[in-house]
Amino acid sequence: MSTLDINNIGEFLAHAHALEAEAASQYADLAEQMEVHNNTEVAELFHKLAEIEGKHIGKIDDKAGDTPIPHIPPWEYKWEGGQSPEAVVDMDAHYMMTPHHALRMSLKAEERAADFFQRIADNTTDEEVRSLSAEMAEEERDHIKWLNEWLKKYPEPENGWDEDMDPPMLQE
């Protein structure tokens, strides 16, 4: 894994804001997809996750206060592999997915986010970045705990959860 060097508070806040904003928008999109496919239980769950991420954006903006945050084009963030660490892998989505699958997807994303913030905290030369990034890493770890608790309510479904006797048709 490559090292991450973010040594400027503006750059750090831009990354933190983009990471949460992307996650919120992705969860909102996934919620919409589930609504379209009438998977209301998972839609609700994704809406809830979007709401939580939305609150994080507010928190980051509060922390930013008067600090100017530079605009960074999406492809110039220091994300490993080019995508935000908190982005879920949407190829894993399925119209019949269960809350278990959704929570697992989210858990992986939170783990990547915690690792991202921790690596910044470990590598930075800027004290303000270090303390804020360590705080964010801690918050992400809290989410991981909370998602794991939530997952206990939704054990892995048995094989065949994706069998559809009447698959949807899209024709024009």
Binding site: L30, E32, Q33, M34, E35, V36, H37, D90, M91, D92, A93, H94, Y95, M97, P168, L170
Partner: peptide, 8 residues
């Protein structure tokens, strides 16, 4: 408009 593509 909500896309009607398959999730994934």
């Amino acid at each position: 408009i909500k896309p009607v593509w398959c999730p994934g």
